Structure formats: structure tokens, C-alpha cells
Amino acid sequence: MFTDSHCHLNFPELVEKLIPIREAMAEAKVDRALCICTTMEEFEGVHGLATSYDNFWATVGVHPDTEGLTEPSVEDLLARAALPRVIAIGETGLDYYGMEDRKGGRTVADLEWQRERFRTHIRAARACTKPLVIHTRSASVDTLRILREEGEDGAGNRAGGVFHCFTETAEVARAALDLGYYISFSGILTFKNAQDLRDVAAFVPMDRLLIETDSPYLAPVPYRGKTNNPSYVPYVAQQLATVKGVSVEAVAEATSKNFDDLFLRTEQ
């Protein structure tokens, strides 16, 4: 019924509890999950989950905040993208949030390495025609610009993809949709102070929506502040159903179909 399109089940707080999490997923009717890679070093563990369970899939990529670990080449990404049950490139993108605190006072100009890494991921995704899983935080202008410059302009798309854990404005959502991309919402959608985001969700067409947990982060209400896991994704679906004025079953059906259309079109 439900598909969690973005989770980090290889992280220690989740992988150590994988059996009860899978039981909770079954009880909550969460049939499938996409396990997201954030470093090249963790790829083997992420891929191992996908090859061990027939309702898990994997991605390959390096998160924009990652520093001091292996920097991937296009060839590195393509080699892993060719493996069974690897269905997307990412998590990739740009993150300019908290320049003073989180990035040691560096400027946006100092983050050219992020932009080059993003281009590497886009080029790999276009080469293997697998979708991108995009993280963008306080960087939407550059994220959209680079996608266009690399050919992902809505007309020349060979990759496509999703803007995951969307927290941007309706204008950014419209631009992403115009490029042919999907929009995914997380537990943030349920937060009391997230009315602006719910307004954005109301705008996004049903055939371009995905739902996710981004677990272990961002647990939805009523579990906010606790460790998140894929069995909580129905709470995101329920909030989306309320926003859209449809049944939760309709959201489950639409978002699962969208997952198939985006991610499983090239499954080996």
C-alpha cells in the first residue's frame, strides 16, 4: 500500500533494529522502501539491504554535506549504478544552510566543490538514465540552474528525479515540476508550524508526489522528536490526504504508482 521513497536503514540506530522495524512496516502496510546512500564508504551496507530483501532498493551517491571521504567520479557512480537493485543516483545536490555555524564561516563561493560534485552525479545519472535523488537546502537557485545547465531542463531530461524532503517555496516547486521532477514530502508536513509547506503540497499535482520518512530523522507527529522509521510514513500520507481532500488510500495508490514510474522504469 505505502512506499517510503527515502530512508537510511543502514544507519546504526535503524539497522540494529531491522527485524522489528520490518514487522512494524508490515503492520502499517508499508510494503516497500528505498534505502539511500550518502557516502561511497556506506554503499556496500546500503546495497546489502537491497539485495537481502525483495522490498528494498538502493541508491548510490554522496550527500552534499559530506567532506573528507571518497569523492566519486562519474565512473565510480556508474559502476555501482549497474549493480542489481540500484535504482537511482544520490542523495546529491547542494546545501548552503548555516554558512556561519555549520560551514565555518565559508561563503557560497567557497562551496564550488559541492557544485562540481552535483554535476558529477547529474552526468552519471544521465549516462545510465537513472533518476536523481536531490537534496537542496538554502540553495534552490543554484540547484535549478545546474540541472538546467547539465541538460535536465524538462526537454532534454535523460535522468529526471525527485526533490526529496521538500521544504522550499511554491515557486521552487513549480520550477522543479517544470523541469519534469517529482516532489517528495516528509514528516515535516505534519509539524504544527508547517502550514506554508502544506500549502505547497496542495499545489503539487497528485501524479508528481512522493512520500518519505528520511528516517531516522524528522519523525512525523505524533512521534516528533523520536527516532523515525519507515513504518511511520502513513502519517505523512494521512496529512497529504487531508491537504488534498482525498482518502489516504488514494494517496498511497498515487505515490506508490509514482515511485514505480520514476524509479522502477530501469530496474534490472
Rank of each mutant, 00 (worst) to 15 (best):
M1K: 11
M1S: 07
S5E: 03
C7T: 13
H8S: 08
L9V: 14
L9F: 11
F11S: 01
E13A: 10
V15F: 02
K17T: 05
L18T: 08
I19F: 04
E23W: 10
A26S: 13
E27L: 11
A28M: 09
A28R: 13
V30C: 07
V30L: 06
D31F: 12
R32S: 15
E42S: 09
F43K: 10
F43W: 04
E44A: 15
A50M: 03
A50N: 01
S52Q: 06
S52A: 13
S52V: 00
Y53R: 02
D54S: 14
D54A: 06
N55K: 01
G61H: 08
G61Q: 10
H63A: 05
P64Q: 00
L69N: 06
L69P: 00
T70N: 06
R80Q: 13
R80S: 11
L83K: 15
L83R: 14
R85V: 03
R85E: 04
V86K: 09
V86E: 06
I87V: 15
L94F: 02
Y96M: 13
E100C: 06
D101C: 06
R102D: 07
G104L: 02
R106E: 04
T107V: 04
T107D: 07
D110T: 06
W113Y: 12
E116T: 14
R123K: 13
R126L: 02
R126A: 12
C128Y: 04
P131Y: 09
L132G: 06
H135F: 05
R137T: 11
S138Q: 14
S140Y: 04
D142P: 00
D142Y: 02
R145V: 00
E150I: 05
E152K: 04
E152S: 08
E152G: 02
D153V: 01
D153A: 04
D153Y: 02
A155G: 01
A159I: 06
A159W: 00
V162L: 01
F163L: 10
F163D: 00
F163V: 00
T167D: 02
E168V: 01
E168F: 01
A170P: 00
E171A: 15
E171M: 05
A175P: 03
L177P: 09
D178P: 05
D178Y: 11
L179G: 09
G180T: 12
Y182S: 05
S184H: 13
F185D: 11
S186L: 11
L189P: 08
L189D: 12
T190K: 08
F191G: 10
Q195S: 15
L197I: 14
V200F: 07
A201W: 00
A202K: 14
D207W: 10
R208F: 12
L209T: 10
L210I: 13
P216N: 04
A219C: 10
P222Q: 08
N228V: 08
Y235E: 10
Q239D: 01
Q239M: 12
Q239W: 00
L240Y: 04
L240G: 03
T242W: 01
T242N: 11
E249C: 05
A250E: 15
A250Y: 00
V251E: 01
E253P: 01
R265F: 14
R265E: 14
T266W: 13
T266F: 15
E267N: 12
E267F: 11
Q268E: 13
